[in-house]
Amino acid sequence: MRSKGEAKSMARDKAHSRKEFEGLLYPILPSLYGMALRLTTDENDAQDLVQEATLRAFRWFHTFQPGTNFRAWTFRILVNLFITNYHRKNRRIQAETDLEAPEHYQRIVGNSTWRNARNTEDDVMDRLTDRDIIAALDQLHDEFRTAVVLSDIQGFSYREIAEIMDCPVGTVMSRLYRGRRTMQNLLYEHALERGIIPKKTSTLDDDKKKVTNLEEFRHKRR
């Protein structure tokens, strides 16, 4: 049995660690909520996720090493919780599996409409709204979306993302690559549909030539 004095001092420690925890938590709460919102794409789910993650982080606060990255540590808990509780695989489309397929890349950033004339490129980028970009992001498969958000929006390094997502750095790189490419493809399709990019242009023919040339080039290299 513990003595009364011991119990009191433990209570004090607990209150102290809660204050310390809250001191670290509140400055990062907006970005934690922003992350949760992009993961769940629903405000209520995001609030639940943040609340559960912070409680869990508090329960495990004794395992946190002071001086290390609290933000990454909390994000890791949030992402894990999301994967176990909120993961809805089927709602997302898979990122392109064929990383090497040159046609998508060529179509968007190769010698194509988007890039051929600098003016056109600027134009298309300018005419894509934030909502278009968010919609493309939200359509990504969870793993890719998580990686893109952690990198492009939350500004974590590859190493930190690897820790948060519990995977090797190489996997982070490939998830980012595929996630961003898929977004570009989705936006390109969207731009075509909305007529932001004309459907038939002479540059598309150049495009095909380019792809063929690339294939020939690869063939020669073998």
């Binding site: 907006p30 970005s31 909520y33 922003g34 992009r38 980028m125 894509l128 934030d130 909502r131 970009i133 968010i134 992001l137 893109v148 958000v149 492009d152 929006i153 977004m183």
Partner: peptide, 8 residues
């Protein structure tokens, strides 16, 4: 563009 579109 992603960074600008998605602010916290």
């Amino acid at each position: 563009a992603i960074k600008t579109a998605v602010t916290d």
